[in-house]
């Protein structure tokens, strides 16, 4: 079949909402685009464990501790689902992991902010997972089959993440003045970085238009961000907390909230590596990789030994 025919088949599939599967023909640029997005997503799940991992030993009760552990374990699983999906496009896992460690791959800018107080763990679950859910619900309909299936599985697991975070904040907000102030402080620090999670405005986003045309993404960054804001405001109201945006106001006509300006300079600065924790995060990933080497070697040696024993028994 000629390349033009293959392109026509591909285009027709995209048009008719037929998923693209690993062995199907696809344009190189599509392969690259989906691979980049899935790898970034996988890295984000993995690096995302770090700010929360910081609080496991200091969780205020057993109930909070098991919940946080379970959530972080889920994120490790999400990383694996996504690395598996990325691998279907022909880049092996080791390469993807090394790209992150060598600073060649990006991950979500939000994880370069520290979790300073226990309330931050609440804010991360509520806002960071909340924003991720909005994005991931949209991605369940992505045109690349393995990515879509990974998203469906992930979305099933995410709702507990957001609820456990919100419950933490609810408890703090019903507690002492200091506890409520701690919750407000967490919201103050996490609100704007959470909005940045959706990425630059579509008009400034280099990949947005093409991703939408290929149906890799089904909604633009700005619409997703608006959706997140619209659904989060009343949750903040219920907590009795104030969203740190003086311009936030219901717009009756549009049926959505008007809101202020994102500090894009901060966003690009964090992406470039100058956020509060960029170096710490990469160092932690590198240390985990290095310190895990003996486990990988031991598992390999064990498998080799058992295989030899099997061969001997068979002989």
């Amino acid at each position: 079949m000629s390349e033009t025919d293959l392109q026509t088949i591909f285009d027709r599939k995209i048009e008719n909402e037929v998923k693209i599967e690993p062995k199907d023909w696809m344009p190189d640029a599509y392969r690259k685009n989906v691979l980049r997005q899935m790898a970034q997503h996988a890295h984000s799940e993995v690096v995302g464990m770090l700010p929360e991992g910081n609080w496991i030993t200091r969780a205020p009760s057993m109930r909070r501790k098991v919940a946080l552990l379970a959530k972080i374990q889920d994120e490790a699983g999400h990383g694996l689902y996504l690395y598996s999906a990325a691998e279907t496009l022909g880049t092996d896992r080791e390469r993807l992991v090394l790209d992150l460690l060598e600073g060649k791959a990006k991950y979500s800018s939000i994880f370069n902010y520290p979790a300073l107080t226990w309330a931050d763990i609440g804010a991360v679950g509520w806002l960071v997972d909340g924003a991720a859910i909005v994005n991931q619900i949209m991605l369940q309909k992505t045109s690349y089959g393995p990515y879509s299936r990974a998203m469906i599985r992930i979305c099933k697991e995410e709702s507990f993440h957001q609820r456990q975070g919100y419950e933490i904040l609810l408890t703090l907000c019903r507690g002492t003045e200091e506890q409520k102030a701690m919750a407000q402080d967490a919201l103050n620090r996490f609100w704007w970085p959470s909005l940045m999670m959706f990425g630059p405005s579509d008009k400034d986003s280099p990949h947005s238009a093409q991703s939408m045309a290929w149906k890799v993404k089904r909604m633009g960054n700005d619409d997703l961000r608006q959706k997140f804001i619209d659904q989060t405001v009343k949750q903040a109201d219920f907590l009795g907390l104030t969203i740190p945006d003086p311009d936030l106001k219901w717009n009756e006509e549009k049926g959505q909230y008007d809101w202020g300006q994102i500090d894009w300079e901060e966003f690009y600065n964090v992406i470039k590596g100058n956020g509060p924790c960029n170096k710490e995060r990469l160092a932690a990933r590198q240390a985990a990789y290095d310190n895990g080497a003996w486990v990988r070697e031991a598992a390999t040696a064990y498998a080799n030994k058992r295989a030899q024993r099997r061969d001997k028994d068979a002989a």
């Binding site: 694996l80 689902y81 598996s84 598992a299």
Partner: peptide
């Protein structure tokens, strides 16, 4: 359900 890497079937 999905896939994963492991050195042998048991793992």
């Amino acid at each position: 359900s999905g896939s994963l890497h492991a050195p042998d079937a048991e793992m």
